[in-house]
Amino acid sequence: MLDIPLSALAAQAFTGLVLGGIFVLMAIGLSLIFGLMTVVNFAHGSFYMLGAYVAFSLMSLTKSFWAALVLAPLVVGALGFLVERFLIRRLYGRSPDDPLLLTFGLSLAMVEGAKLIWGKIGLTVDPPKQLASAVNLGFMNFPVYRLFVIAVTAAVLIALWLFLEKTSIGLIIRAGSRDALMVRALGVDLNRIWLLVFGIGIAMAGLAGVLAGPMRGVYAEMGVEIIIDSFVIVVVGGMGSLPGAIIAGLVMGEIVSMTTFFAPKLAELVIFIVMAAVLLVRPSGLFGEAGLAE
């Protein structure tokens, strides 16, 4: 197995980038919510699943993938607003276990709810015609749709970075995650900020679901599978750290992809091994601040 052509490794690295892209979209939302609100959102995977289903329904309604791509994350994000406003907000100031239990229960209810609405049998979604073909990259044929997923992920990350760094709301969000009490003392209504952040995080999970649908199909359990991986990535990157979520997401995508190439049986396990190794050396994760998650 030592004479592996470089082209095969390049191909493998490229597929890893797409896996990583979905991981990043999931992990950023989780990390954002945790960093600012110290809420461990167990329902994040279910919002991912919901994004895929809502996109499916919007596509059958509007006959347009593009409309679904834009609208589905907004619908899911709006639902996130409601969940924050009417459920999670009641639990601020209590033990972090309480929102965890709440979102865990919520995720179970959402999976069953999706089965009631869309049926127990998985659905398939087609990528739009313009993106359905494969393009020859020189070293392999690569689906255009997956290139598109990489592009969307990059665009969303840039937009999020601009929002956090260049706007005054972004400034408040960053300040709020450092020291909520001080920001409040300065007369800022953090409730509205929390609402916004939760909505943004949830919308990003929804977007990840919309993007994953045409690749993996849409089924009620899809969120249950990805939530574990996403948590691992957030922990490796450092709870609450956005650069950590991005780097850990991309690195994990590559690690899974490369492991699949060399030792497919280990691909399921490898992210946990990496997590254990990282935590041994850096107990707060790669970019985490000590004390935040303790």
Partner: peptide
Amino acid sequence: PYPLGKPEFSAHLPKIQA
């Protein structure tokens, strides 16, 4: 091999293609 019920095959496909 891939895990049942986790239908993401992209990481397997370049190798098969080659």
